[in-house]
Design a protein around this nucleic acid. Structure first.
Lengths: 205, 205
DNA sequence: GTTGACAAATGACACTGTGTCATTTAATAT
DNA sequence: ATATTAAATGACACAGTGTCATTTGTCAAC
């Protein structure tokens, strides 16, 4: 978490610092990002940076988390729009994400994140989907999700179901970038896997 | 890939270098690992290290890949033992892995890898399961897997099915470490998710 | 057993980038 | 106006990487 100093910053200064960080983290993955670049672009001193953040990672996760929060809102919206149908909502969300990304800066920001996913990065992504479970508990999300169409017998199974879908969705998203799939190809693959998940992997005998 | 020099090394020297690397990569994740430590333990000069490897990552991925190759053999064995039943094989494999890991050095090696999974690390893990598909093509693994019990209609679906199972298995393995689950808890969760995967996530209407 | 040619080993060193800290400057309260 | 607290600054110590000129070792050929 950024330090208090960061949040005390006048709106304008904070904003330009955020822009500078976004620029650097779009250019290269975190581990290659240089604080010197950030402070130069933002027009502040090196020392100031350390007044605001613990270190580079602290700054990075802040920016990434902000992104994720925005995406989470989108997902919740899709869930509402599709009347709680989790499969339709996640597919629409995935689609929306790909369509929006052509913006260069944001595209590269995601790309750098996904080509160098650490466990922490993965968690932030997964929480785009699972956040409600963690924040408000499984009970809360039950209201948003139409459970009638799900093949589950308990809240515990619902948790695992969401878990599975998050994992598969995330993995698809990563591969879109690592295998440089076209949007169409990525969506096609995603749909096939969702279909498999829905119908089940084992033959019912 | 290590340079030719590395493979030209006399057996004994190469072995002690490998031991030194394993030790360091068990102590801390790659990005914290120090080459100084490795060469000191192995009793070679800093310059020599760079005769053998491009850089730290090169060395790390070599060690990790070796580990993965051993694990892949285990998985194939399980597949044979369970007569091509993919679900049983992967569960047994998961179980075997957890049971074996109490060895401190290896445990910490895995832990450091899984708490800092980059995309490359994840890929190496996923290939423990998928390697045959990549190496010998989907046709080859069809021989090992009993497709009669799988709810699929084509080789394409089989590829995706394996993909899904790898993703879920991997995610479970990561969480075993990040959430510090007991072996029993980890196995329990894994089984629940496998069961869900088998029976399908959507209600058949 | 001397020479030459190639392979490997070495460690000093240049370089890059991080995080700290004593000091200065600004803001706010009394 | 003064005291007090918060923020800004950049020089610097430190740590670690990768390089390279030089030395050492190996072995085949004569």
């Amino acid at each position: 978490m950024p330090k208090a100093t960061f949040f005390n910053l006048p709106e304008k200064k904070r904003h330009s610092l955020i822009k500078a960080m976004e620029l650097e983290f779009s250019r290269v993955p975190v581990f290659e990002a240089s604080i010197a670049n950030i402070v130069k672009t933002a027009g502040i001193s090196r020392g100031s940076f350390y007044q605001y953040f613990e270190d580079k990672e602290d700054a990075y996760y802040y920016i990434l988390q902000e992104q994720a929060n925005r995406r989470n809102k989108q997902f919740i919206e899709q869930l509402a729009k599709h009347e709680g149908n989790l499969f339709e909502a996640i597919t629409a969300f995935y689609y929306e994400l790909l369509i929006e990304l052509p913006d260069d800066k944001e595209y590269n920001f995601f790309r750098n994140a996904l080509l160098n996913v650490t466990h922490q990065i993965e968690n932030i992504f997964i929480e785009i989907i699972e956040s409600n479970v963690k924040r408000d508990g499984i009970k809360e999300i039950s209201r948003l999700i139409n459970k009638d169409i799900l093949n589950i017998e308990s809240d515990k199974e619902l948790t695992h179901l969401i878990h599975i879908i998050s994992a598969v969705a995330f993995r698809n998203f990563v591969e879109k970038f690592t295998k440089e799939l076209s949007d169409d190809e990525a969506i096609e693959r995603f749909k096939v896997e969702m279909k498999l998940l829905k119908k089940g992997l084992a033959k019912t005998t």
